[in-house]
Design a protein around this nucleic acid. Structure first.
Lengths: 344, 344
DNA sequence: CTGAAAGCGCTTACAG
DNA sequence: CTGAAAGCGCTTACAG
């Protein structure tokens, strides 16, 4: 059904070689022939079969993107950004979802290698703590880029948010608002982003001579509304005098906010709250939630750009090396944390 | 770098043919040979090159998915659902984003055909009103499934929400709450979903003998918060006595809600509001927004299932035919519309 | 039960 | 400037 080079060659009375070369703009084909052939292929809407072409060139112009999940404002934004930017460079993206499962992630990586994608971009599942599948990619000489949920132990390019800085920024913002007893609803223990945000929180307390109390930190491993909600109810029993809260994610912060409201706390008067991620919802609820902007669009572009850069310097590409590119975040102060009118 | 059938054959002292057949479980290979070969390929982690295989079988096990955008709760959910369900049937999904551009959509379809995907799933851009690119897919004998934003003029499988029914349901719900003067913030003129929801609105008014007034309908073509917000301000000038509002999408409804609040209206006492889509945010704002649940997960599964069904009945597949599969929606009444305590 | 060979649709080194 | 031919890595009809 589909046209082939052979069909075109026959129709035009030239060889398959000539058609192929004309389409790829080889310089040893006469301009007239090129024009003639191009006009025809345009007319009949011919495009060379990508798979056959791959067999010779070893370039598929396909990228594999593995995400823990898609229903998630941040991954979502990154995905759109990568897909669009890739398209503008004539790459297509195969999107896979590990559903937070290490096993799936592993087999998906394998399948992508089988498909000979030109590069793999991945944000790892929460419980991924064996990295042989990622090292396999490197061994296979396929460019690998980790983003957001990265793994420091893998010697590859990594694009991350400045989670430590941002955690620091969020916490210091609360301190500057006068908070003395600040709760942190953190993420699970393994993910680097969760560790880094937590360290940022600690560092800010330290800088401002506020003693760190581990009882004020609660793990919300699934980053859900419910965890934030219940987390606050539990904490409040022991520490009714908390006056600030920094959550790993906006949704957790919103859960916490709900709990505080029910408990009769005024926000931000009694307790100042800040989230993380700047989800759409955060600017629409009451009170508007202060947060940290994670620019998914920027990160997606950086990931794709890094990949393109690798393609251009492939002389050295054989040895994948560890490198971290950090995307700066931004504090977005809103009503939920503004005890004073001071703006940072 | 990658292993090939030839490498395996050499290593095991058999022919390439035998290896290939053993892996594909041909019955004319002895069980012992099969076991031996499989054990080895497992060990060295060999998987046959997908592109070479395609060249013979003409099956890529790739699906092309074209969306107007990804940053969107509903498309998002559908995408995740399709990707996961596809993965469980050993299909991979190439995701493309038309960014609501007909031109991009058109060229993306062309590129997918060039890649010989086994099927194309698409939700069309808002301004797509030429369908030759879609008919091209059918002519090419590639299974085509339209979903959500479909086009009745294309003779293909279409999976849609019951937008008419749902629009009717939403409006009737408001009427049963005692609303007499109901605003509709509708979507743009072209999209079928926008037309159908509007017709549902009209039909409900008609059934309950409420005269339809076109001044009470405002177009929110981008489905944004701002449009909902401004829409209400404009309407209220002429019709300060509106007592109900049905919006094309939750986000528009939330914008409207914001405007009513600012204008001093009580929700739902003065004006009852209902949205559409059940975005995450809708259950988290105050008051909680009544809405129509669009089950993206169900729709994604239905799309993929329909595709699989087509594969199994390929005897007749040559002629693509028009068929509409309707995914039922569900009314989710929440505080924003409950003037009475009556539940439907 | 096993294998030699043709062929899928390209690309490109080589010859003319 | 043009073309014949080899080969990318598979699958499968056919022969034995």
């Amino acid at each position: 059904m589909n046209l082939t080079l052979k069909d075109i060659a026959q129709a035009m009375g030239v060889s398959v070689t000539t058609v192929s070369k004309a389409l790829k703009d080889y310089k040893d084909i006469s301009p007239e022939t090129k024009t003639r052939i191009r006009a025809y292929t345009e007319k009949v809407n011919f495009r060379p079969n990508a798979h056959a072409s791959f067999l010779r060139t070893q370039k598929t112009r396909l990228i594999g993107l593995v995400l823990p999940r898609l229903k998630h404002d941040f991954f979502n934004e990154i995905t759109e950004s990568i897909i669009c930017y890739a398209a503008s460079h004539d790459y297509k993206v195969i999107v896979l979802c590990s559903e937070e499962s290490y096993e799936k992630e592993k087999s998906q990586i394998k399948e992508l290698l089988q498909l000979n994608v030109d590069g793999i971009f991945i944000s790892v599942a929460k419980n991924t703590n064996d990295y042989t599948h990622l090292k396999q990619v490197i061994k296979n000489n396929t460019p690998l880029i980790l983003f957001d949920r990265t793994v420091k132990l893998v010697p590859s390019l990594q694009v991350v948010n400045d989670d430590f800085e941002a955690g620091f920024m969020a916490t210091e913002h609360l301190i500057k608002q006068g908070c003395k007893k600040i709760v942190h609803l953190r993420g699970d223990l393994i993910p680097q982003i969760s560790i880094d945000r937590f360290f940022g929180y600690k560092k800010a307390l330290e800088k401002h001579n506020i003693p760190f109390k581990k009882e004020l930190v609660t793990i919300c491993s699934e980053n859900t509304f419910e965890e934030g909600y219940k987390g606050v109810f539990n904490l409040i029993k022991k520490f009714p005098d908390v006056d600030g809260l920094f959550a790993i994610t906006d949704l957790v912060a919103i859960g916490a906010m709900g709990a505080f409201k029910e408990l009769g706390y005024q926000i931000p008067k009694d307790v100042a709250i800040i989230g993380y991620s700047n989800w759409l919802i955060s600017s629409l609820i009451t009170p508007k939630l202060s947060t940290i902007e994670q620019n998914g669009n920027k990160m997606g572009k950086q990931v794709m750009q890094s990949f393109l850069d690798l393609q251009n310097t492939d002389g050295e590409m054989a040895t994948s090396k560890y490198q971290r590119l950090i995307i700066p975040s931004r504090l977005i102060p809103r009503t939920s944390s503004m005890k004073t009118t001071e703006l940072l």
